[in-house]
Nucleic acid binder design. Structure first.
Lengths: 209, 209
DNA sequence: CATGGTTTTTACCAAATGGTAAAGAAAATA
DNA sequence: TATTTTCTTTACCATTTGGTAAAAACCATG
């Protein structure tokens, strides 16, 4: 090995800390509204150290996005099990999407900012990666409909609705907390959300069986 | 009258122009990410003129919020017609919410930014105005359920889902456009969305009749 | 411990930011 | 027309911003 292990580990830890801090800050204010100093303060280090690891605010932002985008887009796609029934496929899908909102709320908010902003960084990536998967999954649903397994609905809008409904527990958690009168969303709330959404969607599709 | 009409009218027009420009800019970048210069450029006037009409960035932002919040919160509540059936009440509700996304996408995005950011400005207002209305509407749905008019679901999460699903056509329009392969969302798209969502929700609630 | 590389801090800097002050233009009133 | 009030622009200014340069501290190895 050319480089000492201890140093490498430290480097990785610092980088991870910066990325976590950056995600937190970008989640709240978006790219334009976040300052390198704010990220530095959140990470407990100096701004210049961030620039040592990530040569520029753009690069830091891209690193944050890259750090989450694969996991993110993966969870926006059906699990590829042709044996599974529509009901269990959708149920698992919703469940995983809610888990994502629960476990990575900051990632969700960074993504939301990026999209609201017109996806200046992710646009190409979304066209090349999300769109084909989306079209594939739309076809799967169309096949279910053709086979009479679920009620006929517009598959595209079905996805838009499921995405919106699941991500709202991350992006709009403030509003939900306010209305539920809770200082934060707990496991119970996510369980309730999952149960509601699964039953709701499966009822709408008449796919419980 | 102490002030001349012509001047008043001009003043109102300038103010409205500033508010429209500010809404556009805040919609894209949020409060922290927007500069007074950007708003000025969007409005085609000088930054100092904005400061003449709105003495500070905070005040401008608050004015933008105040300009939309009443209409906004109104559309988040059921129309108060005790005669109407659950089906028609919900159908009208969804339709109006989609119309709001279509007609005021910038307002929707400003609202989204504010909530993602933790509702620093609107928090009190939401607690005092949205929350009571929310709880009232939750009770209405509970009554429908008790009367056997709709399937039993958690009314709170039902609202969260409907809000998310309708607002996504404003906030996440970029993503939807990308996936639909369209440069912008047209009337047809909103019609499709409305039809899908009405049928979807009413099917889930078994409330078509 | 001395050397060479890596990591972190300290000093800066030019541009952008929110905001003030004052001057100039336009309009209303006397 | 003269004067007062309202509107708009032009000059500035202190602070914050993203970023560079270089010095200092740290660390593994000869």
């Amino acid at each position: 090995m050319t480089k000492p292990t201890k140093t490498q580990a430290n480097r990785a830890k610092t980088e991870a800390g910066i990325l976590r801090a950056a995600e937190e800050v970008f989640a709240q204010k978006g790219f334009a509204g976040s300052s390198m100093d704010a990220v530095a303060q959140q990470a407990g280090i100096s701004k210049q150290l961030i620039l040592y690891y990530f040569p520029g605010k753009d690069k830091l932002y891209q690193a944050v996005l890259e750090n989450m985008i694969d996991l993110w887009l993966e969870k926006m796609q059906f699990n590829d099990d042709p044996e599974a029934s529509p009901a269990s496929t959708i149920r698992q899908y919703i469940q995983q999407k809610i888990e994502l909102s629960r476990d990575y709320p900051n990632g969700s908010k960074v993504f939301a900012h990026e999209i609201i902003n017109g996806a200046p960084v992710l646009k190409t990536y979304l066209i090349e990666n999300l769109k084909p998967a989306f079209e594939r999954d739309v076809k799967i649903i169309e096949r279910w409909i053709a086979a009479g397994h679920i009620r006929p609905v517009d598959p595209k809008h079905l996805f838009f609705t499921i995405w919106a409904a699941t991500q709202t527990y991350a992006d709009f958690s403030t509003q939900i907390q306010l209305l539920l009168g809770k200082p934060s969303l707990e496991q119970d709330d996510f369980n309730e959300a999952t149960e509601f959404l699964c039953n709701f969607v499966l009822s709408a599709l008449d796919a419980q069986h």
